[in-house]
Amino acid sequence: MRLSDAPILERGHIFNPSYVLVTAPSLLFDPTVKPLEGMADGSVLFVNSSKEVQIVQPKKVHTIYRDITELALKHIGRDILSAAMGAVACKLSGLISLQSLVDSVEEELAELGLAADLIEKNVQLAKECYSSVESISLRGLDYKPSHKVVEVQYMGERGIPDLLSMGNTILRKTGSWRVFTPIVDKNLCTACGICYIYCPEACISLDEQGYPVINYNNCKGCLVCTVECPRRAIKTERETIWS
């Protein structure tokens, strides 16, 4: 969305963001995302997390942590965060009133064809998120341009878009997608291996005795294992490892 009284001449990439909102802490470490880039002293970082995350902050930025996912679960019962994050952005910037926020949540979700009760739940979620943070006004942000134009070198065969490192998505910590964490109850588990078979992500391996071992770095928390387990031996807990 682009909205201003004056023409906005930025398009696409925002080089020097005043406010950065991060929906999942793992994104802070993703080399393909780099959300902190270009932030100036005094700008604002919001992270959807119940606790502080160790990050190397290049600048003195206001950092705020809130567990928005928890609020989404409370109101909607699912980790759908768009209204929640939008509400946080509205409030942080101090530019958009609560009424405008509510109006637009109602309008946009109605356009998507959501049922009235679900829209109302989203409104309640947005309202709570709105009140969960304070506005932070920005003054005199000092952006230091750090871009140097370089010459592109011809790289020969390395300049061909072939991928030679196989099976390397394991580096992507999709565990941060999880809202609920599957936990094997060793007392109930019979080592039947069914959870291992039905895990779409290959995140469950079997130990020497045939008991499942879950790879929490990558488990997205789809919870197919909890449903497929014939003994209901896999419990779920609200995710805490990542947030």
Binding site: V152, M155, L163, L164
Partner: peptide, 29 residues
């Protein structure tokens, strides 16, 4: 051939490059 498809040396070819600078890089190459 460069990086041909072989049993002993798996390779992924033609895959999406969704990162704009990387796309520019490959086109410049």
């Amino acid at each position: 051939p460069v990086n041909p498809i072989r049993a002993s040396e798996p390779v992924a070819k033609g895959i999406p490059v969704l990162i704009p600078p990387l796309y520019s890089f490959f086109k410049y190459q």
